[in-house]
Amino acid sequence: MQIKTVEANGNNSALQVRALRKAYGDQTVLRGIDLKIAKGEIVTVLGRSGSGKSVLLKLIIGLQKPDEGTIELFGTEVTQLPLNELNQVRKKLGFLFQQAALYDSLSVEENVAFPLRRHTRLSDAEISERVQQMLARVDMGKDLKKMPSEVSGGMKKRVGLARALILDPEIILLDEPTAGLDPITTKEIDELVLSMQKEREITAIVVTHDLSSVARLADRIVILKEGNVIVEGKPDEVKRSEDPFVREFLELS
């Protein structure tokens, strides 16, 4: 199996998005997004609801196809890849959905074990050990046997995060990982993402509305408005932005 490598992509780039455009019927959600993210970088994506943040994540992992533009992951252009090759790339990604999207017929433990069972040859004992370790890191070590319907929304998010991290991905895409969580759990989740970055040089794209998380996590901030990137830069640079929308957004958040 040969995967086309784009030479133009820099060595240090984990993800590069060029002129990405997506519309649903008459409604254009993304209007030509350009974005480059280096290995080990944490980028937070901000914007009003409906500005295309979640769509951007779904395009990156290939759940939806862009109308125009390219997405390069680890130097591989992925938008035109056949499914089996795309799945090879997806194994290097972790995705946390906005509503966690846990498999409701599987227990918490089985949810987190799912990627390991599908993509590794680990024994049941090894899988169980790794799952318990990961769930302990998100403070869910005591709820292994519970079903998703028996845990709270915040707990589902933490299980979803554990599932996203269990294969040691190189890039994690987190869609509002701390929405609905209390401040202490929010801080713990942020610290977990930071520790993964330090330990494994993980790259993260975090869609969030939580400015305290942004302050803790972001190496760089991207703000979307009506499908366009209106501001992109380091946190200090974005805070100094004179753009009226950015000023209002940051003041009200």
Binding site: L83, Y103, F114, H119
Partner: peptide, 21 residues
Amino acid sequence: AELGSMKVTEQVDAIEASAVD
């Protein structure tokens, strides 16, 4: 009902995102 529920709660997308068809 089962697949419909999985579809609207993004569980089908979650399977796909896990590199499983």
